[in-house]
Each structure stands twice: as structure tokens, then as C-alpha cells.
């Protein structure tokens, strides 16, 4: 605990240091007066030969200090005192900081959920989405890629060598009636391969059959639906 002792005994050190320097100057003044100087002359000469007393005392004190830490603390104290003196400025600063930090947090949480967080599927880093591009095909507007047709999909999945599984989907809406209130829900029509690719198990239904590989089919085993009004789980099957 030497440093703690040092911290507490520092005040004594400082006063001892000031005393030493004062004694030094007194002795010197007395010596110089013995040599025939007046008190004023002697004081002046003693100080000149000693050097800048304040500066030297400061440098001697620094020996006992943690310089970086203490100058940071002193700066902090000064800025807090200044802020307290001008509350309007302080409020402006605090608001600026608060808004800055808040905006940053908001942007980061969006970036995190959209870009950084992995999708909630197993091996999500191996999921890719495919787009069709046909430069030079002479089609006027394909800025968002070419539209996928069922035959294209069937060709791609039939020729697929690169991917474990492949599937396509398309958003739709549907009406649910006969329960409580009729409700329009968002549905997705999807093909064989989507659930396997995402690693989502079927909840019910008997899955896809080769012969029912028909994208326009509407049987329950084809479509997944999630209600817009808060159903706890998507119905998948």
C-alpha cells in the first residue's frame, strides 16, 4: 500500500519542499547581506541565482504525482466547473451528446438487425439469393433483374450442381373465413426446396410430391401463411 501512503503524505511532502526552498533562499540572502548587499539587493540576487521558484517547485512536486492521470482529473474538474457556470451551454452540450448517441444507437441497431445479425436459420452464412441478369438481351427494363418464370426455375433446379437445394417463393394474400372474423392474411406460395434450404421443418401436411411440382397449386401442402394480426407461429406445411 506504498502508493496510498504516498498519496496521503503528499501534502506533507509539498509543504516540506516549499519550506526547504524558503530556507535555501533565507540562508542565501543572509550570506549575501554579509557580503555587503542591502536586503532588497540580496533578495533579488538570491532569486536570480536560484531560478524560477514557482516553476522549480512545480517540477519538484511533479516527481510525486501521476502526471497524466492528475492532469486529466484537473481538466475534468475544470470543465465540470465551467459547465455548471453556464447551464444553457451545458444543456446544449448534453442534448447534442444525447441526440448524437441516440441516433448512433438507432442506426447501429438497424444495421445490426439488417446486416450483421445472422438470419435465424441453421447455416445461415451459406444461404444465397439468386438473381437473373441478362445484359444485352434487349429487354427494356430489367433494372431489378429478370422476372422468374416457373420453367426457368425448373430448368435451374434440374441442372443444379452448385447448391444443396433451391426453391422459389412469391408473396400473396388470402382470406381466412369461418373462424371468428374474416381476415386477410399474408401468405407465401413456395416451391419444393425452400423449406429444405432454410432448414425449417413442416408443421403438417405431407410435403411436396414430384408430380405436384406446380407453382400455381394452392393445396395446403404448398402454401405457408402468417397472419398479419399476431398469430404466434407461422403455419408451415
Amino acid at each position: 500500500m506504498g502508493w496510498l501512503q504516498q498519496l496521503f503524505s503528499r501534502r506533507d511532502r509539498y509543504s516540506e519542499l516549499s519550506e526547504s526552498i524558503r530556507e535555501h533562499l533565507d540562508e542565501k540572502v543572509a550570506d549575501l547581506m554579509d557580503r555587503g548587499m542591502t536586503r532588497e539587493q540580496a533578495k533579488h540576487a538570491a532569486r536570480r541565482e536560484f531560478g524560477n521558484v514557482t516553476r522549480i517547485e512545480e517540477r519538484s512536486r511533479e516527481v510525486w504525482q501521476w502526471r497524466t492521470l492528475e492532469s486529466v482529473l484537473a481538466d475534468l474538474k475544470l470543465s465540470l466547473r465551467r459547465l455548471r457556470k453556464s447551464p444553457r451551454f451545458a444543456v446544449t452540450i448534453l442534448l447534442t451528446l444525447a441526440i448524437g448517441i441516440g441516433a448512433n444507437t438507432a442506426v447501429f441497431s438497424v444495421v445490426d438487425s439488417v446486416l450483421l445479425k445472422p438470419l435465424p436459420y441453421p447455416d445461415s452464412n451459406r444461404l444465397v439469393s439468386l438473381w437473373l441478369q441478362a445484359p444485352g438481351a434487349g429487354i427494356a427494363d430489367f433494372s431489378e433483374g429478370l422476372k422468374m418464370s416457373p420453367s426457368m426455375y425448373l430448368t435451374f433446379s434440374g441442372q443444379n450442381r452448385s447448391f444443396q437445394s433451391m426453391g422459389i417463393w412469391s408473396p400473396r394474400t388470402a382470406n381466412v373465413t369461418g373462424l371468428a372474423q374474416p381476415e386477410e392474411v399474408h401468405t407465401i406460395v413456395l416451391s419444393d426446396g425452400v423449406l429444405q434450404t432454410l432448414g425449417v421443418p413442416r408443421q403438417w401436411g405431407d410435403g411436396f410430391h414430384r408430380r405436384s411440382r406446380n407453382l400455381e397449386g394452392r393445396s395446403p401442402s404448398f402454401s405457408a401463411m402468417a397472419t398479419g394480426s399476431g398469430a404466434s407461429a407461422a403455419i408451415v406445411g
Binding site: 511532502r13 535555501h24 516527481v63
Partner: peptide, 13 residues
């Protein structure tokens, strides 16, 4: 310079 003794003395203390 006489003053320069003091920082040195403090370091040695």
C-alpha cells in the same frame, strides 16, 4: 543552477 537541485532531490527522496 541552484533550483535544479530540488527536482533531483525529490526524485531521490
Amino acid at each position: 543552477e541552484e533550483g535544479s537541485l530540488y527536482p533531483a532531490l525529490q526524485r531521490m527522496l
